[in-house]
Design a protein around this nucleic acid. Structure first.
Lengths: 204, 204
DNA sequence: GTTCTTCAGTACCGAACGGTACAGAAACCC
DNA sequence: GGGTTTCTGTACCGTTCGGTACTGAAGAAC
């Protein structure tokens, strides 16, 4: 069936991209509806009609962010070995959180950490969103153990958590203005803890 | 000279401790003046007379947090070797951000990351506060290189940044409800990247 | 062309925000 | 005890918050 009535006068996905950027730069609480609608180029009423409310807009923005701006993470999972997956993910992550044409840092970290006030649900939602990625990585590393390119005694869950910890810590640094090269250097150090790093994992 | 007029009816330091906890749990923006003064047990006017305004109260709260709740960091710097310093710091950090009687995570991380809205100065202040600790660690590691207990080609600045990245990533995880044991396991992995880890640093 | 549905925009809602004026009370100095 | 100084408490300031009626206009179906 065709859509009745007057069709929407703006591109909902394009507007969502603008919302992503505002939330990314200012966080959930710091982004007011006026900030959002101004950036999206639409009216307050149109926003409510299209997305429901501010929290729902944020959830959709985060989902879109996970799809578009974190595509590198899914790409990294396709690398042939556990070590290659981790190295690709961490280096691509650094590039993503230090892009000149995007806000510094990571939306799913600086969007909201504290659980006080009206954004308790938001912090939970972001935590769950991050955990999804962590579990996907753990699954991939588990397969790497099964395939033998990670040592048999490797704990894939713990290793995945370590990798995410490094990426989140880098995001905090990036939000504070750290240089891209510095964060790549951090990754180079971090990778020394990963089984498969050249001659650096004699024990484990 | 003795103090003139009616003396203050509350303990300013004790009240500040309460404020630390509110900011820690709810972040700068998420903590309203009513939340703060209720927890501090004092009146709105008394708070303004004693601390100036909300942002100044936050700065003092962060400074007190750095003194009291992060004493473990200064203690860690006294360990005899670079590796021991890092191991002590990271493990003590995990305990600090997962204390049952305190909010989860780290005030200087979740206090405010985004620079939007009215808290741009706050994010900058926190970043500077974190950088102070990072530089103190870098100085200590530089001494470790000079003293020979870290390899001569170690970059103390990069290594200090790596350590802080791990601690900040752990703080993000802790704020999301991660278990203490899991974060200690993360630290155990992270330490494998540090020169001096048992037989694990063949290269570098 | 008529009707109906959905859009866009203004103007507004009550509530909460950070911050302050003002009045009264309490403790010091003399 | 008088005078002064500083604290405490209430009540309020203007602003901004997220969210919503309500008015027109625009387009599709018939």
């Amino acid at each position: 069936m065709a859509e009745r009535g007057r069709p929407r006068g703006f591109d909902a996905d394009a507007a969502l991209d603008r919302a992503v950027e505002v939330f990314w730069r200012q966080g959930y609480e710091g982004a007011s509806l006026s900030d959002l609608t101004d950036a999206m180029g639409i009216n307050r009423t149109s926003m409510y009609a299209a997305y429901g409310n501010k929290e729902e807009l944020f959830r959709r923005a985060v989902n879109r962010y996970a799809e578009a701006d974190m595509a590198y993470a899914r790409e990294a999972l396709t690398r042939p070995t556990g070590y290659a997956v981790i190295a690709a993910f961490l280096h691509a992550n650094v590039d993503a959180i230090t892009r000149a044409d995007r806000p510094a840092g990571c939306l799913s970290v600086q969007g909201g950490l504290a659980d006080g006030g009206d954004n308790g649900r938001v912090a939970e939602f972001l935590a769950a969103s991050r955990l999804t990625g962590e579990q996907a990585l753990a699954d991939r590393l588990s397969r790497a153990v099964a395939e033998g390119d990670l040592p048999a005694d490797t704990d894939p869950v713990a290793l995945a958590r370590y990798v995410m910890v490094v990426s989140e810590g880098n995001a905090v640094h990036a939000a504070a203005g750290a240089e891209r090269a510095a964060l790549h250097a951090t990754v180079d150090i971090a990778l020394r803890a990963v089984p498969g790093h050249a001659a650096a994992d004699a024990d484990a």
